[in-house]
Structure formats: C-alpha cells, structure tokens
Amino acid sequence: MTTFKLIINGKTLKGEITIEAVDAAEKEKIFKQYANDNGIDGEWTYDDATKTFTVTE
C-alpha cells in the first residue's frame, strides 16, 4: 500500500486528506468522488514524486 494525499483548494472547502491505496488510479477515483460529493469542481493535478493530488477551484 502507498500513502496518497489530496490537497483541496476550493472556494468553500480547503484542507488535506491522506489515505492509503494500492495505486494512484484507485486513489484518483476515490478522491474525485469525494470532491464531487462535496461540490468541488476544479482543475486536478498529480505529483508522482510526492504522491499528491491537488484540486483547485
């Protein structure tokens, strides 16, 4: 398992979430669903070196 981080830079929601997953593709799906469930629609980036997804509205 690898630890992945999501950084949220939303208009109404900001924060960080850290979760373990098998791979980045699995985690991306979970993070995007979390963002969608919380009304966050923005630009996504991924840094493989730090295993960090960022979504910015």
Rank of each mutant, 00 (worst) to 15 (best):
T2N: 05
T2I: 14
T2D: 05
T3L: 12
T3I: 12
T3D: 03
F4L: 05
F4D: 00
F4G: 03
F4W: 05
K5I: 13
K5M: 07
L6Q: 00
L6G: 00
L6M: 04
L6S: 00
I7F: 06
I7Y: 06
I8D: 00
N9P: 01
N9W: 13
N9S: 07
G10S: 09
G10F: 15
K11S: 10
K11P: 06
T12A: 08
T12I: 11
T12V: 11
T12N: 10
L13Q: 08
L13Y: 14
K14L: 13
K14Q: 11
G15Q: 14
G15S: 12
E16K: 07
E16Q: 07
E16A: 07
E16T: 11
E16V: 13
E16H: 07
I17W: 13
I17E: 01
I17R: 03
T18Y: 14
T18K: 06
T18I: 11
T18N: 05
T18Q: 08
I19W: 14
I19A: 05
I19M: 06
I19R: 02
E20R: 13
E20I: 13
E20A: 11
A21P: 02
A21Y: 09
V22W: 13
V22P: 12
V22I: 09
A24P: 11
A24Y: 11
A24N: 14
A24S: 12
A24M: 11
A24C: 15
A25I: 10
A25E: 09
A25V: 09
E26T: 08
E26P: 06
E26I: 07
K27E: 08
K27C: 15
K27M: 15
K27V: 15
E28R: 07
E28Q: 06
E28L: 14
K29E: 10
I30P: 01
I30E: 04
I30W: 14
F31L: 08
F31G: 00
K32V: 07
K32P: 01
K32M: 12
Q33K: 13
Q33M: 10
Q33E: 06
Y34C: 12
Y34H: 02
A35C: 14
N36L: 15
N36D: 10
N36S: 13
N36R: 14
N36H: 13
D37E: 11
D37N: 05
D37H: 04
D37I: 09
N38D: 02
N38H: 13
G39L: 07
G39R: 05
G39F: 07
I40Y: 06
I40W: 12
I40L: 07
I40H: 02
I40R: 01
I40M: 04
I40G: 01
D41T: 13
D41M: 12
G42K: 03
E43F: 11
W44Y: 03
W44D: 00
W44P: 00
W44T: 00
W44G: 00
W44I: 04
W44N: 01
T45Q: 05
T45A: 06
T45M: 06
Y46A: 01
Y46I: 00
Y46M: 01
D48K: 04
D48I: 08
A49K: 08
T50I: 04
K51N: 08
T52N: 02
T52K: 01
F53H: 00
F53Y: 07
F53A: 03
T54N: 05
V55L: 12
V55G: 01
V55Y: 09
T56F: 10
E57F: 15
E57A: 11
E57L: 15
E57N: 10
E57K: 06
